[in-house]
């Protein structure tokens, strides 16, 4: 069957098998940031934005994405670069395999709630598993970003 969607801002037409999952479609399109960590919708590694909403691309049919806009980390490099350096400062990226999903969901969180509390961050990212970092460093990184941004907003000349 044919689908038409917008992928990272680019109009796309593709011929697909009806049962194709969005994750496999995206990887075939070269969006290799999208990772698979489980088969049971538990890990969050495959998170992408569909019409701006974070979803598990392992659980969306590529067919259902037809007519919608899909964004992967490949398409959101600049938005990600604003804050991921703070996570790097903590060393919390570790193996990196869960990073794209986690970064995508953090983008969604910060769009929805630009100044989240620590508890709000934990709750929003609860569906993003990480086996390396113990999570605290990821939280410190986001917090450091928010603090730095907060300072910048108060004093634009700082």
């Amino acid at each position: 069957m044919e689908i038409r969607l917008t992928l990272n801002g680019r109009q796309l037409r593709a011929e697909i098998e009806p049962a194709l999952l969005l994750i496999d479609f995206l990887r075939a399109q070269g969006c290799l940031s999208v990772k698979r960590g489980c088969e049971t919708a538990n890990c969050g590694l495959c998170t992408v934005l569909m019409d701006g909403v974070p979803v598990l691309s392992c659980s969306v049919l590529a067919a259902r994405a037809s007519g919608h806009s899909v964004q992967t980390l490949e398409g959101l490099q600049e938005e990600a670069e604003e804050f991921v350096g703070f996570i790097a400062d903590q060393g919390a990226e570790q193996c990196g395999f869960c990073n794209p999903g986690y970064v995508m969901n953090t983008i969604a969180l910060l769009r929805e709630n630009p100044n989240p509390t620590d508890d709000e961050i934990r709750a929003y990212l609860a569906g993003n598993l990480c086996r390396c970092s113990g999570y605290e460093g990821q939280l410190r990184g986001i917090r450091a970003f928010l603090n730095a941004r907060g300072t910048k907003e108060v004093n634009p000349h700082a």
């Binding site: 919708a41 979803v55 598990l56 569906g127 993003n128």
Partner: peptide, 12 residues
């Protein structure tokens, strides 16, 4: 609802 897996799951 808030304890069901994660936000991305509940969006679907």
């Amino acid at each position: 609802l808030c304890h069901i897996v994660g936000v991305q799951f509940r969006n679907l």
